[in-house]
Write a protein that binds this DNA or RNA. Sequence first.
DNA 1: TTGTTTAATTGATACCGTGTCAATAAAATA
DNA 2: TATTTTATTGACACGGTATCAATTAAACAA
Lengths: 179, 179
Amino acid sequence: MSRKIDPRIKRTKRLFKDALISLIQENYDKSKLTVQTIAERAELNRATFYLHYRDIDDLMEQTINEILEELHETMKGSSEDAHSQKGSSRLVSFLEHFYRNAGLYKVMLENKEFRKRVFAILLDIVTYWSDYRKMKGRSFNVPNEIVAASVLGIVSWWLEEGTPYSPTYLTNFIVERFK
Amino acid sequence: MSRKIDPRIKRTKRLFKDALISLIQENYDKSKLTVQTIAERAELNRATFYLHYRDIDDLMEQTINEILEELHETMKGSSEDAHSQKGSSRLVSFLEHFYRNAGLYKVMLENKEFRKRVFAILLDIVTYWSDYRKMKGRSFNVPNEIVAASVLGIVSWWLEEGTPYSPTYLTNFIVERFK
DNA sequence: TTGTTTAATTGATACCGTGTCAATAAAATA
DNA sequence: TATTTTATTGACACGGTATCAATTAAACAA
């Protein structure tokens, strides 16, 4: 029963994840992404890959988990700051995180599983926001799911277009639509 | 200069497209979709595939074109019917077409190119709708692109959830958000 | 520091899908 | 019916996958 993780494993997994992310951000054709290419980029042996991952989907899944953990961390901070009184403040920090990592998220959002996870986070944000409005007697007149789906659509488009608006400006547009 | 298309070509291409669509609708893992499998399903020889298509993406592209032509045909009809006075009537016939072919569209919308094309159609609908509202002095307060992206997000979610609302009911939700 | 344990590398392997080809069979056309 | 075009067949080289045993390298514990 080893208490600490072998630093070699930690390093290797980090190198593979970084390799995947860098290839994704270069808009490397996803259908042509091979274990070979990833191993080359990571400067590790191809066989080493199989010591840690079943296949590329497995690596992808673990990488997604890591990225979303980071997103959660970012969001956690924002719900404690001064703006947290406004219902839409969490949306701003959500968008800011996407803005900072636009190249990555743009491609990652093509992944169905990733989209589902992001949708769940958005639904959380919308529900929080909805409760805030309910408190003020200004409930949404559509289900939270539809609001969340709508926001996800807008965010996808925003990334696809190269983030043409700032996170706060985009938030205004989104909020505007729910007046 | 042959005036008519050889019926064998027509038949072969139809068989390949039908095979692709049936595999897609069975939710066949897209990353595992091979020319072999498609040819087997079409009950044609694998080499025949290469007489008509460069690769699977090529077949996909041609299939997408065919499906979207059908969508355009459906929409064309609706802009001439009695409801065409209302700005949102085209949206209803759009959603009805998606409702009828939900299994197919649900998966097809994962394709980036397909999504782009559907977005363009939605932008068209929204622009038409927006002009109608402008005429009545009730302009949207957000860019048409954002409205279209929002609707695309809602439609994707709606298909993903197994079309929980009827096309007209969903239209009400969407329209509701722009009062 | 040394011996033990664990991880990474290397070279080999069988397997599967790709894309292309020449030869042949089958169907359409005039 | 003769000619043209399409589809089939079996073969091929190529490249990526997933796994293996043997070896080298790094980490850990005493």
